[in-house]
Design a protein around this nucleic acid. Structure first.
Lengths: 296, 296
DNA sequence: GATGATTACGGACGCCGTAAGCATA
DNA sequence: TATGCTTACGGCGTCCGTAATCATC
């Protein structure tokens, strides 16, 4: 099992095409074909079906292992390249719903002790943020997601990256003003299984929607692929459906109401990610973000 | 970063010698030298010091990553080779202190539904048991260790192997009959920091001894490298020192007393490990062990 | 001086790209 | 028929082992 072959398998599974995998990896189509064939020969079974190109069960499983291995290799490379050195600029990756006040406080704090510090913030989804930290493109990441109370988000192998919880906030169901449940004190998700939903994976995380009552429900779904909270809320206010959002983001709703989610017991959680072997500057950034979050 | 090179680095770090690493891996000494050199060239820094051969900080860190990656590769290979097939014999790896009654109940249970099942049990330390499950040599493993209450043992990357908790039991401090603390109702470990200790990593896990009060203490240490409980207890009874053991193993003490450990809050935990994609026979074994543990 | 890591060098194998072959939508 | 994966084949690079070199205990 060569790294190269695993990378090829992963690219093929991801893109659904040998040709595109070859383009992505800078190989010829033929090379990818040979690499996957070598892997299949080695494990003695087919890993992807051809035409259409889809992973078999074994291929899917191997691709998952491959993804973890390649991520860890990225982390290893990044950690080693940071041994000793310390960059002038601090790159922060942020996933959509991180409490915005947190960043501002932390950066002001950092600037006060290091006035010449350049900070660069990029908005990414959680998976991409993890990849950026792993590859060293970002120094730290603020990522959010849905989890059980006091449970970590499972963003990477435990221990691969240093992660600390910054904040947890309750989840609310956002309803149009005239919704029959709008005056409830709290809501169980089951009763909304067949309701029309507005699904925004990059906002509230796909975890919420994967919960069984929702996954099995037959209500109409509206997908919103953006990051913008106001748009999301206006969709709800406009009567297109209901949505789950973190309470911390729902201070001022216009034409909608937020009702606390009672079951399932889930919270919106924000974590801070960094490489485990951090430089002095990264360490300071982590501390600043931690103290900012406890100040909020 | 090639798998081959990482494996070489790990072998060099583990054995402390290029020559022995070469023997272990079936290469010439020269090949290992070249592989490590290639790795050092690639990451742009020295990974091991020579004569004596010791890892640098960077090398140590990379070796840790390498170990995880190689373990995951083993798991991937094992999982794929089990797709479909099901072996006639069930291999169980057991670490020293697993509740012995548990195995007996589970195996009797399995035999009753599958009389021709061959079972083979091997006693190994926890690390080796993990490796055996990963490589497919063992179908399931019963491993034990020290953890905080309701916390998993961190034996491998979370999610790499299927693990379920079978049992948790309190920890006791085993003291000679005439020890001044022998009549206490419970003990804080701090008060024993400077006491003479009997350290048996393969019995109670090294985690206990790594706790700060003990690690910093100046008491004499006696190391016992075996698995045998009676020997261990007789060492305590003989006045060589005190020890921490799981309460479940200390039913009949001869010449010693067991006092519950109050702080730190730790328990002895037994977990069941298996590959995540299990065969029918493995699945039955897991269920039998689970029901046996809940019966105890 | 002996043990053990590095360097030098040649042979062999493996890998990739080009290009032809072939199957499927 | 066209798109796209596979197979054939040749060249290049790489990797390993032998053996000489060098360093350290």
């Amino acid at each position: 099992m060569e790294i190269r072959d695993l990378r090829a398998l992963l690219a093929v599974v991801r893109t659904g095409s040998f040709t595109r995998a070859a383009e992505d990896l800078g190989y010829s189509q033929s090379a990818i074909s040979q690499q996957v064939a070598a892997l299949e020969l080695e494990v003695g079974q087919q890993l992807v079906m051809r035409r259409p190109v889809r992973p078999t069960a074994a291929g899917q499983r191997l691709a998952e292992h491959a993804a973890r291995i390649l991520l860890r290799l990225d982390v290893a490379r990044s950690e080693l390249s940071h041994f000793g050195h310390d960059a002038a600029e601090l790159h922060v990756a942020v996933s959509p719903l991180d409490a915005p006040g947190l960043l501002a406080i932390a950066i002001r704090d950092l600037r006060s002790s290091d006035p010449r510090l350049q900070v660069r913030i990029r908005l990414l989804d959680a998976g991409a943020a993890v990849a950026e930290v792993a590859s060293g493109t970002a120094d730290v990441a603020l990522v959010d997601g849905i989890a059980s109370p006091n449970e970590p988000l499972h963003l990477a192998d435990a221990g691969l990256l240093a992660s600390t919880a910054l904040a947890e906030s309750a989840l609310v169901v956002v309803l149009p003003l005239d919704h029959p449940l709008a005056s409830r004190a709290s809501i169980d998700l089951d009763v909304l299984a067949d309701a029309p939903w507005i699904v925004a994976p990059s906002l509230a995380g796909s975890e919420v929607y994967a919960l069984s009552p929702l996954a099995l429900g037959h209500g109409r779904r509206t997908a919103y692929d953006g990051h913008d909270l106001l748009t999301m809320i206006s969709l709800v206010a406009g009567g297109l459906g209901v949505a789950v959002l973190p309470a911390s983001c729902c201070g001022h709703l216009d034409g909608a109401v937020a009702v606390p989610l009672r079951t399932p017991r889930l919270v919106h959680r924000t974590e801070l990610l960094a490489l485990r072997s951090v430089t002095v500057r990264q360490q300071r950034a982590i501390e600043a973000l931690q103290s900012a979050s406890s100040a909020l």
